[in-house]
């Protein structure tokens, strides 16, 4: 049985020109595997992630024919049960630790909250678990980081903290929404390697949302390509170069490579794509 099954997921927001659909009926199944969702800004990939966590606040509206996580219907689940899932079985790493960590709480406090919300352990044990989680993302002096505030750590360190916070209860599925877009190129792969290790080691499912084709093909088993709120292509990570959809081909063609012979990078022909 698959871990997550989504059928005909739609997300819409009201606007002055009537409702705007940002996710237009997507379907996919996910086991304990690593699924990449790629697409440009506004293609609906982040909204898909948030809809799965049920984090789209009114007036946004989420509908689906089916949205089942490990036998539980995410659409009809009461709020309280949903909160029990979040953080413990379903988690999400967000883009920029500068904004996604609470600026006025210590890192230790923010991390132990996850344990607190899910009623695990007493204060002392929580502290131990947090320190262990910090060590697991290769932070050498967890005691110090525990006491620090988010503004006192670097971006890469902040994102490792975020990852540690999201895996501390060993969830079944983690959604990573552009986890490295806000980071320096030099620390991107470091952070992704840490995340990848944890996911393999703990056997979690992953949805990696990104606009970076290379990155996604390197860290995922399977890739969904989204465009204008729809899935336009699904393929195995290794077979990305065999993609058939013109949008995917266009994306691939516009990736610069070393030892380039082209004088000009091609751009997407949106007029032609508009019809698909």
């Amino acid at each position: 049985m698959s871990l997550l099954s989504v059928e005909n997921l739609r997300v819409e927001f009201p606007s002055h020109q009537g409702p705007v659909e940002v996710v237009k009926g997507i379907s996919f199944d996910l086991g304990r595997e690593r699924l990449g969702i790629v697409g440009e800004s506004g293609s609906g990939k982040s909204m898909t992630g948030r809809a799965l966590m049920r984090l789209i606040a009114p007036p946004g509206r989420v509908t689906a024919d089916r949205m089942v996580f490990d036998g539980q219907d995410l659409q009809t689940l009461p709020d309280k049960a949903m909160r029990r899932l979040r953080g413990a079985r379903l988690s999400m790493v967000m883009q920029d630790p500068k904004f996604s960590l609470n600026p006025v709480m210590t890192i230790g406090h923010q991390m132990s909250e996850v344990l607190e919300f899910h009623g695990r352990q007493n204060r002392k044990q929580r502290r131990e678990s947090v320190l262990k989680a910090l060590r697991s993302v290769r932070i050498d002096d967890p005691e110090r980081v525990y006491r620090q505030y988010p503004h006192e750590v670097s971006g890469g360190m902040g994102q490792r903290v975020m990852i540690a916070m999201m895996v501390i209860l060993e969830p079944d599925l983690m959604i990573a929404d552009e986890p490295t877009s806000a980071l320096d190129v030099s620390v991107q792969s470091q952070v992704l390697d840490i995340m990848d290790d944890l996911i393999r080691y703990k056997g979690m499912g992953l949805i990696l949302i990104s606009h970076d084709l290379n990155l996604v093909s390197r860290y995922c088993d399977r890739i969904l390509v989204m465009f204008k709120g729809r899935i336009v292509e699904t393929c195995e990570a290794g077979q990305l170069h065999q993609a058939t959809h013109p949008y995917t081909q266009g994306l691939l063609a516009s990736v610069p490579v070393l030892n380039e012979h082209r004088n000009r990078l091609p751009i997407l022909d949106r007029i032609q794509l508009g019809s698909v």
């Binding site: 966590m53 967000m94 960590l101 996850v114």
Partner: peptide, 23 residues
């Protein structure tokens, strides 16, 4: 965004409001 993080962690609404936003 950090409010979203708090919700992702499974925080009850009361905690989201008083402990995170109010602080």
């Amino acid at each position: 965004e950090y409010i979203v993080t708090a919700r992702v962690k499974g925080a009850p609404e009361r905690v989201v409001i008083w402990r995170h936003a109010f602080r």
